[in-house]
């Protein structure tokens, strides 16, 4: 099976800035692929390299096996849901959705019929006559989705599509995007800086840092086995322990990570320190214990007794939970 998108040593430099630096990447057909990273890490530039709004400084990009170095955006069968949606303000919703079909020369009746179908798919039946300005943020986002999907793209690119929505709506849209992707079987490439979003939606993800891919794999793999300190820290607020501390906890002299959920209060244990902070999270507490000058966060499920700030506390963990990283 050919891969949907393939990067071979792709770089995109802006002057001295290496936005994307020698990236190798393969996205399987039908995947829900997330590109995760802080702002400026190169994930959005990678997305724009796929859509064709950026051209690689060096390296090769293939879409379904075809080299696209000479293909402009409008001839790539790839569509994008833009971060700010970029709906056409002078057209109503129906014309927005039908735009891609119109420029390809489809007659009015069939293209409006397809646009209405697509609006029904995103639960916006009956909104065709409205202007984008009359819609809420969530509705605009659905229009942007419908406008891209109506073209039946081989790859759908989503640039932080949920960033502007409030929490409740974001969670609902996450489920909806996921089921839509399953149903349509289109390859989704999704850019986000929100690690929980990436973990919950993607079936495969790449973590970006400084223009390079720090780690690529499935969400469980990346969460449980981060390869570098950066990944451990960025994906799900892990405790990152320096080599000396790792060794004192029974590991090798290497950096390691330890999830807060893996730590439990106990009468005896390898970690004893002063409680320096306590935060209520709804479903339990997060406690920060300082030992040997190092802050270690532990998750206390609700029902567990909460310690006083300033008191001493001892923590224990299953040695298997201590994840030692390759990075020196």
């Amino acid at each position: 099976m050919t891969s949907a998108v393939e990067f071979q040593a792709v770089s995109r430099h802006f002057g001295a800035t290496k936005a994307v630096d020698a990236v190798d990447l393969t996205i399987a057909e039908g995947a829900f692929f997330a590109m995760l990273g802080p702002s400026g890490s190169g994930k959005t530039t990678c997305l724009r390299l796929i859509s064709g709004f950026e051209k690689p400084t060096s390296g090769q990009i293939r879409i379904f096996g075809e080299d696209v170095s000479a293909v402009p955006p409008h001839l790539r069968h790839v569509n994008t849901v833009f971060q700010d949606y970029a709906l056409f303000p002078h057209m109503n919703v129906r014309d927005n959705v039908a735009y891609g079909l119109m420029v390809k020369g489809m007659a009015r009746t069939p293209r409006y019929a397809k646009a209405e179908d697509m609006l029904a798919l995103v639960h916006l039946d009956g909104y065709g006559d409205r202007k984008p300005a009359q819609l809420s943020g969530g509705q605009r986002q659905r229009v942007a989705l419908a406008r891209a999907l109506v073209n039946e793209p081989r790859v759908l690119l989503l640039d932080e599509p949920l960033g502007a929505l409030d929490l409740k709506l974001r969670e609902a849209m996450q489920d909806e995007l996921k089921s839509l992707q399953k149903r349509l079987g289109i390859t989704f490439v999704f850019v986000t800086h929100d690690q929980s979003e990436a973990l919950s939606m993607a079936d495969s993800l790449a973590v970006f840092n400084n223009g390079r891919i720090a780690q690529i794999g499935t969400p469980t793999d990346i969460y449980a086995h981060p390869k570098t300190r950066f990944v451990a820290d960025f994906v799900g607020s892990s405790n990152v322990l320096p080599p000396a501390l790792t060794q004192s906890l029974g590991g090798p002299t290497k950096w390691s990570s330890l999830r807060p959920e893996a730590l439990h209060p106990a009468p005896f244990g390898p970690i004893t320190g002063t409680v320096t902070a306590l935060r209520y999270l709804g479903a339990g507490h997060r406690v920060t214990v300082t030992t040997q000058g190092q802050d270690i966060a532990a998750h206390l499920p609700s029902g567990t007794a909460t310690p006083q700030v300033g008191s001493q506390m001892t923590l224990t963990f299953d040695p298997a939970a201590l994840h030692v990283m390759d990075e020196a």
Partner: peptide, 19 residues
């Protein structure tokens, strides 16, 4: 933004200009 959106949806430069 909307000019890129137009190209993304398959319009050539002249269509983007006109529409």
């Amino acid at each position: 933004g909307i000019l890129e959106a137009s190209a993304d949806l398959g319009a050539n430069s002249f269509q983007t200009f006109r529409f």
